[in-house]
Design a protein around this nucleic acid. Structure first.
Length: 374
RNA sequence: CGGGGUAUAGCGUAGUCCGGUUAGCGCGCCUGCUUUGGGAGCAGGAGGUCGCAGGUUCGAAUCCUGCUACCCCGACCA
């Protein structure tokens, strides 16, 4: 185990040895590492003393290239959150007080959990030349001048699993987006006698093969030790997106029952072409989960212009609050002290809009996002 | 680190204030029969150092002392 204050120390100590010429740039090192942090208080899946994360560190010849890199990584994280986790995120930059120590700019993606609290799901930093100067990392440019390199760093962690769970789950258990579900479809036979199971299995295995041929992961649960009802609940608990049930009645009618985890709806389909129908349903579930989370966020985002309303929303409703802020950390601190809400992000695509700070009444030209956060 | 709480069968718990049969219940587990399209029913059964170490008492899950572990809230933080 290696103990160091922050990853940058070990990375930049090494980069100093590796970087001499503009020909050595850009440089990107990504690592997956278990890290240990001293935390006064831990929180399951969100803030544990030890966790697995991915961290990338880059070095560039120009400021422009480094900024582009940190923005690109933020986009990649946002795309993963939205397209794969079906979790909408706000992209933006952190206020100076929430900024990573040593960064010139900290970019972040912020998600809203079902309990109305915000969760930072990933960060990307433009480090300027801060670490290059601290670790004396210079390169010789094409023009034969000695210059400090420009840097970025970025990462996401197993915290994303906590985010996934809190974004979609319901009272029946976990809800997994199809694109991330280890098992996307489960097939459950319904039968009385051994002979019936044998008949059903023939059909079930055929469906399983057809689904697998389309790249869909399937489990055929023909265990005789549990009853169908028990299995239904079990797979709902585990968040399997689609459940197929086949019984004697289906064999007679050439049908199959399809149940969706996201809506809990059941529907009986003709078994013909079932693999294409299921594939389509998986896509619908992926899309529906995202839309559901997006609607939830929209329903829980409030545009607020007065301090009383601000306090009321933060205290009684939760969610994101869009309000004007005078840009000072003094105001930010006071708001936090009085309401526990912090500036989660200053949206990148936020429209500029003249207004007055919700706390101090001083002029402001953009709304920022406040929320209570994990 | 401060405040609060909990510890009893694989899991969840009652009993603890006010000491007294064999520590009760639900789920799970085992056996048999009946069941199987939403967590099966009936009958019988197995399973307990009551967190650990001392003490008080004729007698301790219960009272006292010390310890340990875990949970919640706060400060810290992603």
């Amino acid at each position: 185990m290696i103990i160091r204050p922050t990853s940058e120390t070990i990375i930049w100590d090494t980069y100093k040895k590796w970087i001499q010429s503009y020909r050595d740039l850009p440089l990107l090192i990504n690592q997956w590492a278990n890290v240990v942090r001293w935390e006064m208080r831990t929180r399951l899946l969100l803030r544990t003393a030890e966790f697995l994360w991915q961290e990338g560190h880059t070095a560039h010849a120009t400021e422009k290239e480094a900024i582009e890199e940190s923005e690109k990584m933020l986009d990649i994280y946002a795309e993963f959150a939205e397209k794969w986790m079906a979790m909408p995120v706000l992209k933006g930059v952190k206020s100076p007080s929430e900024r990573f120590a040593g960064a010139v700019e900290t970019y972040c993606i912020e998600a809203l959990m079902q309990d109305g609290k915000a969760l930072q799901a990933g960060t990307s930093h433009f480090l300027g030349q801060n670490f290059a100067k601290a670790f004396d990392v210079k390169f010789l440019s094409k023009e034969n001048t000695l210059q400090y390199v420009w840097a970025t760093s970025w990462g996401v962690s197993t915290r994303l699993m906590g985010a996934l769970i809190m974004a979609h789950s319901d009272d029946k258990g976990l809800v997994l987006p199809p694109k991330l579900a280890p098992i996307q479809v489960v097939i459950i036979p319904i039968y009385r006698k051994e002979e019936q199971l044998a008949e059903i299995s023939k059909v079930a295995v055929k469906i399983k093969d057809a689904l697998q041929a389309k790249g869909i992961s399937v489990k055929f649960d023909d265990r005789d030790t549990y009853k169908p009802g028990w299995k239904f609940n079990e797979y709902e608990f585990k968040g399997i997106p689609v459940r197929l049930a086949i019984g004697p009645r289906d064999l007679e009618n050439g049908t199959i029952e399809v149940a969706r985890r996201d809506t809990l709806e059941k529907e009986t389909y003709q078994i013909t072409d079932i693999e294409n129908k299921v594939e389509h349903i998986l896509e619908q579930i992926q899309d529906n989960l995202y839309q559901k989370a997006l609607s939830f966020r929209e329903d829980n985002t409030y545009v607020v212009d007065s301090w009383d309303e601000f306090k009321d929303v933060i205290e009684n409703k939760g969610g994101f609050v869009l309000a004007h802020w005078d840009g000072t950390s003094e105001t930010e601190d006071k708001i936090k002290a009085e309401t526990k809400a912090t500036i989660r992000t200053i949206p990148m695509d936020g429209k500029s809009e003249e207004g007055t700070c919700v706390y101090s009444g001083k002029p402001s030209n953009q709304r920022v996002v406040f929320a209570k956060a994990y």
